[in-house]
Simulated scan of single mutants.
Amino acid sequence: MEPTTLNPKTPNSQNDTGSNAAKEHVNRSLDEAKAGAAEAAAQGKEIFRNSAAQVREALSHTTDQAAQYVQAQPLKSLLMAAAAGAAIAMLAGTVGKRHGHS
């Protein structure tokens, strides 16, 4: 007896059933993947929103502290700002000389 081969051009009810089941399985898997991706995106968005709010709050708090310090110690703050500006200028000059921009 010769082995039978399925001809893809001629429909076979058993082959069609298996094909339909495979298609349904693929469609369910795709739907589940889409749902999982949407859920992960929503969670990521929420995490990002919460993190951004925390950063804004921390920045606001730090800015308030800096303003209070400047009000309490104006001369000291001015000297610190001048020293920081001088350090940045020296650093920029050094970097510029290394790259041949002077």
Score class of each variant (00 low, 15 high):
Q54W: 03
G93R: 00
P8E: 07
S77Q: 10
K45T: 08
N27V: 04
K23G: 03
A35L: 06
I47M: 14
N15Q: 11
V70R: 00
R56P: 03
S77D: 03
K23C: 00
R98Q: 15
E32Q: 08
A87N: 08
S102N: 13
A37D: 03
Q14H: 11
A33L: 15
Y69T: 07
H25C: 07
L91Y: 02
A58Y: 07
T5M: 15
S60C: 10
Q54N: 06
S29N: 07
G96M: 07
K23L: 05
A92G: 10
Q54A: 05
H101R: 09
D31S: 13
P8C: 00
P8Y: 04
A42T: 13
M90W: 02
E57F: 00
Q65V: 01
A66S: 12
A87H: 06
A84M: 13
A21R: 12
A92N: 05
V70P: 00
S13Q: 15
T63C: 11
A21N: 07
E24T: 07
A33C: 12
T4I: 02
T4R: 06
D64W: 02
N27R: 05
Q14A: 15
A53K: 05
S102M: 04
R56Y: 02
E46K: 10
S77F: 03
K45G: 06
N50M: 11
H99W: 05
A53C: 10
L91V: 12
N20S: 09
I47A: 15
V55K: 06
T62N: 12
T5V: 12
Q71C: 04
R49D: 14
M1H: 05
K9G: 11
A92V: 12
G93T: 04
F48A: 12
M80T: 07
R56T: 15
A41P: 00
L91C: 05
